[in-house]
């Protein structure tokens, strides 16, 4: 076990965990932030997407020991920011979720897509969002919501 100081959603947290623990499980089990989801554990589904210094990362595959001073943002933190509003409003408008389990990951990944590309084409969306599985098949609405958000921000 080892101590780590983490900046999560603007707050400092100290955790005592094994260094190889994926940050996903630190967030969920130690810090009680369960909005970040487990889907595969091997970077294949995107359900665990968080932001590290503002860029999307698959938290299931990032050990806590490699975080260092990078700032962690989870869906809980991101959804409260001003920057999130156009995206979340678009999600509301299109009533995107079915079961909802993949949605935090979709939103977190879409946020960095829009940050890096204010006006993404269909192909840009397909390429960037390819890593986010939705077992329920909400893809059409995910795409529509990203486009709405791009128009409204």
């Amino acid at each position: 076990m080892a101590n780590f100081n983490l900046s999560i959603n603007g707050t400092n947290h100290q955790v005592d965990v094994d260094p190889d623990t994926p940050i996903l499980w630190v967030l969920r089990d130690e810090v009680d932030l369960v909005g970040t989801k487990y889907g595969c554990g091997i970077s294949q589904c995107g359900a665990c997407t968080i932001h590290l210094d503002g860029q999307a990362a698959r938290s299931c595959s990032v050990p806590v020991s490699s975080i260092g001073s990078q700032k962690i943002t989870t869906i809980e933190g991101f959804s409260e920011t001003k920057a999130a509003k156009p995206l979340l409003d678009a999600w509301r408008k299109h009533d995107v979720p079915q079961c909802g389990y993949c949605q935090a990951g979709q939103i977190m990944n879409a946020a960095t897509l829009l940050k890096n590309n204010a006006n993404p084409s269909d192909e840009d969306i397909d390429a960037k969002m390819n890593g986010n599985l939705c077992r329920c098949g909400t893809y059409i609405r995910v795409k529509a919501a990203i486009k709405t958000a791009a128009t409204n921000s």
Partner: peptide, 28 residues
């Protein structure tokens, strides 16, 4: 058209699903 009643909780990452459940003294 009526929006999903859990929509706000889903898009803000609130505990909703089975896997999110925690209880006093619980072991995994």
């Amino acid at each position: 058209d009526t929006k999903n009643v859990d929509l706000e909780n889903i898009i803000s990452g609130k505990p909703l699903f089975g896997l999110d459940l925690k209880k006093e003294g619980m072991q995994y």
